[in-house]
Computed example of a mutant assay.
Amino acid sequence: MGHEQGRLLPWVTADGKPCFLVGDGQGYLSRVADDMERVQLGMALELLGHADDMLADYGATAAQLRYLSARMAESLRDVHRVAVSRGARMVDPVLEPEPE
């Protein structure tokens, strides 16, 4: 893990700024962050199921669809933060295929 930059944590401060953790990735806070990422990814999967159901229901109201859209936007922000964090921690991130 790159210690210079730190790990982007799966939550933000009260005013919406990113949180970072510097360390070896083995401590208590790292485990809490790992658990939080698992919860966020699981919630995103559940939300997708609800979205599929609601979009198949032609009786869904505009208010219900707006609420769904707001929750999906929140979830997408969380999933993006997890992806960025995990990508930054890759030992050798593959950005482009190696030329042959």
Rank of each mutant, 00 (worst) to 15 (best):
P18S: 02
C19G: 04
C19R: 12
F20H: 15
F20K: 11
L21V: 05
L21Y: 05
V22D: 00
V22E: 02
G25M: 10
G25V: 08
Q26L: 09
Q26H: 12
G27N: 06
G27P: 01
Y28D: 06
Y28V: 03
L29P: 00
L29Y: 08
L29H: 11
L29W: 06
L29C: 03
S30Y: 01
S30G: 11
S30V: 00
R31V: 10
V32T: 06
V32L: 14
A33E: 00
A33L: 01
A33M: 01
A33T: 00
D34T: 01
D34C: 06
D34L: 07
D34P: 03
D35E: 15
D35R: 14
D35P: 05
M36S: 06
M36T: 12
M36G: 05
M36N: 02
M36A: 11
E37H: 05
E37Q: 13
E37W: 08
V39E: 09
V39K: 13
V39M: 12
Q40N: 05
Q40E: 03
Q40H: 08
Q40C: 02
L41G: 07
L41C: 10
G42C: 08
G42S: 11
G42F: 12
G42L: 13
A44T: 04
A44M: 09
A44Q: 08
L45G: 05
L45P: 03
E46M: 10
L47T: 02
L48V: 14
L48Y: 09
L48W: 09
L48G: 15
G49P: 00
H50Q: 12
H50P: 04
H50V: 15
A51E: 14
A51V: 12
A51F: 12
A51S: 14
A51Y: 08
D52P: 02
D52G: 06
D53E: 15
D53N: 10
D53M: 09
D53T: 07
M54E: 12
M54P: 00
M54V: 02
